[in-house]
Write a protein that binds this DNA or RNA. Sequence first.
DNA 1: GGCCCTCTTAAGCGATCGCTTAATTCGGCG
DNA 2: CGCCGAATTAAGCGATCGCTTAAGAGGGCC
Lengths: 335, 335
Amino acid sequence: MTFAQLQAFATVARLGSVKAAARSLGVSEPAVSGAVAALRRDFGDELFERRDGGIALTPGGARLASAASEILGLAARAQRSVTEAQGAAALLRVAVTPAISEQVAPPVFDAFTGRVQNVELSVEVHPSTAFAGLLEDRIADVVLGPRLSGDASFGTESVPFLRYRLVVVARSSHRLARRREIAPAELAGERWLVGPAGAGPETAVGAFFERHRLAPDEVKAFPTYAAAARAAAAGEGVALAITHTVLDDLKRASLARLDIRGTPVERLWYASALGPDRRSAQAWALLRFITTPEATQAMLARSGGVPADRFRSPVYVTLWSSHRLPRARTKEVQS
Amino acid sequence: MTFAQLQAFATVARLGSVKAAARSLGVSEPAVSGAVAALRRDFGDELFERRDGGIALTPGGARLASAASEILGLAARAQRSVTEAQGAAALLRVAVTPAISEQVAPPVFDAFTGRVQNVELSVEVHPSTAFAGLLEDRIADVVLGPRLSGDASFGTESVPFLRYRLVVVARSSHRLARRREIAPAELAGERWLVGPAGAGPETAVGAFFERHRLAPDEVKAFPTYAAAARAAAAGEGVALAITHTVLDDLKRASLARLDIRGTPVERLWYASALGPDRRSAQAWALLRFITTPEATQAMLARSGGVPADRFRSPVYVTLWSSHRLPRARTKEVQS
DNA sequence: GGCCCTCTTAAGCGATCGCTTAATTCGGCG
DNA sequence: CGCCGAATTAAGCGATCGCTTAAGAGGGCC
C-alpha cells in the first residue's frame, strides 16, 4: 500500500471510472488499473466491480475509499502543517477524558495559552484507559484525568490538579429528594443518565456502581454531561454530577441533590507526563501552570461555553474514534 | 513520503532515539536514519536535533510525529476494516451539520439501521459549506442539512425531510419576555448564545442576523446547542432555538420565547445525494426512509440521548476537524 | 588528545514502484 | 455473431525504495 495507490483508488471511487481517474491524474489507464490491482492483492478484496456502465464499490471498497480520503487528507495537512511550522510555536499535545474535555478544559487551556508564549495546543479526547499508551508512544505530551494505575504509571509522573465532588442529582420532585441518609441500594431501580464516556469501570460512574455493588438495568448515555444533567432535571432519571457544574441548578431547584450515604464522593484529577528527563519544556510549563491558583480559578468558574472565535480555532477533537495505536509493524502496514 | 518512512520517524519520535528505533523495528541504524533524511528533504525541516543525550523535536517535527501516528493508525484501521468487510454490510457515509448531529441524527439513524438490513452507517459532522464537495468527491453518500446552493447542487438531488421552526428564547425574567411584536433591532445589544457551528453566514443564526441586519457585538459559542439553551435559561443571553427541542423548557417556564417580529422562522432540512444514476442502493434507501412518517416521528420525539451501548459503537465522529479535502495532487502528496 | 557513543553519509544491491505501449479479456448492443 | 468501449493483463524500463556494510562526523567525558 502506497500513497500513490491510495490516491489512484480514491480517484477511481470518486469519479466512478478508471478511465476518468486516469485522465484526471494525467496518467495512462493501466497505471491506475495496476495501482488498484496492487491494493486488491494487499487487501484480498475486489474493491469494486463493473456494474452496468459504471462501477459499484464492494463493502470493503467503500471502507477503503473512505479511509483513503482520510489518509490523503491527513497527509496533505501534514505537509502544510510542517512547512508552516518553520520557527513557529511548539506543539503541546494533550489528551483528556470526556468529562474534563467538557467541564474544565476550555477555560484552563484558554488561560494557559494566554499565559505561556510560543505554545500551540492540540487536544484530543480519549478514554483514560488509553492514557498510559498515549504517553509512552509520545502521541500525547500530557494527559489529564484519573491517576494512572499501577504498572501503567511506570516512568511517568502525575500531579493532582483539581479536587472535585460528585453528587447524585435528580428532578426536585423525585421521590428520594426529601429523604435523608439514603442507602445506596435504593438507587438500584433508577434509570441512570450518564455522559459520553458511558458507565465503564474506568469512569467515575462505573466506580460508584462498583463500590456500592449497583448494577442498574437502565443506563442511558448522553453526548454531553450537560445533556445528562438536563435530562435529570426533566425527570428522566438520576445522574452523578460534579457539584460545581450543577450549582446553578441546585440553587434554582431545577435539580435536587439526593442525600445518598457515601456521597459526596471526593475525587482528584491528575495531570500526567513522562518522567522529568523525557519531557518537553512545554509539558513542564503545563504541569506547573495547572496547579496554580489561577488555573484552579479558571476551572471552577462556571463555564460550558467558550468565545466564538476561539472555539472555531482548528483544534482537532476526536470523540471515541476507535483509534488503534500504531505499533511497529512495518511489514503489515506497508507490505 | 512513504509509510515506511513515517513509521520510522514515528518510532524515533516515540522512543527518542534513532538507535532504539532501529532496534525496535529490527533494522540497522542507517536504515532509520536514511528514512528520516528522506522526510527531512521532503519537508525541508530538520524534524529533530540532538540535544543533551537524547533528541528534541522541532515544532515541525512534533507536528509530523503527531500526523504520522494518526496516518499509520488510520492505515492499520483501514487494513482491518477492509478485511473484516468481506461479505459484510454495505457502508453508508452520511455527513450532517452540527445542529442535525445533535438534534435529530441519533434517533433517525437508530430507526434507519433498525429498519434496513445490511447497512452500516458512518456519520461525520461538517459545516454545510463543505457538503457539495463531500458528495462530489464521494466522501459522503448522503448529506443532511440546508439545501445545496445554486451551482453546488449540479448533479445532485435534494429532498426536504423536516420542517422546523426557530424562535428566540431567553430566561423567563428577561426584559423582553412580556413584550409583544418586538422589533428585531431591539435584540442588537443582546449577548447571543450559539451552538458549535458558530454564527457564520451558513448557519441559521447567521442567516437570521443577516436578514435583520443585526451585528451583535457579543456572541458566545457553546460545544452543544443544549448547552447554549441551558445558558439562556441561566440568563446569560438569548439564543435561537429549534422549537421542538425547547418545548419542555417553555412549558416549565425555565425559558421564555421572545415574540420577535419575523419569528418563528420556518426552515427546511434537506437530504441530498448524487443524481439517481450515481447513487448507491443504500443512499436510495436512506433518502426514501427519511421522508417517511416513521422517520419524522423519530426526529420529533424529544431525545438528546441515545442508549448507552449504541452510543459507544465505533461510529467515527469528527468535530470541526479543519480537514482539507483531498484533491488530485499525486506529485505533492507522494513526492 | 583519545575514547566511546550516537547519528549521518557513502556506496552498492535486489525488490518494488510507477509508468509506458501493446495485446487481451470482458460486457453490452445492434 | 461482430463490433466497440472499458478494464485488465503482459512485458519492459528507469527511478526510487529499503536495506545492507563500511566509513565519516560530532559530542560528552576521562
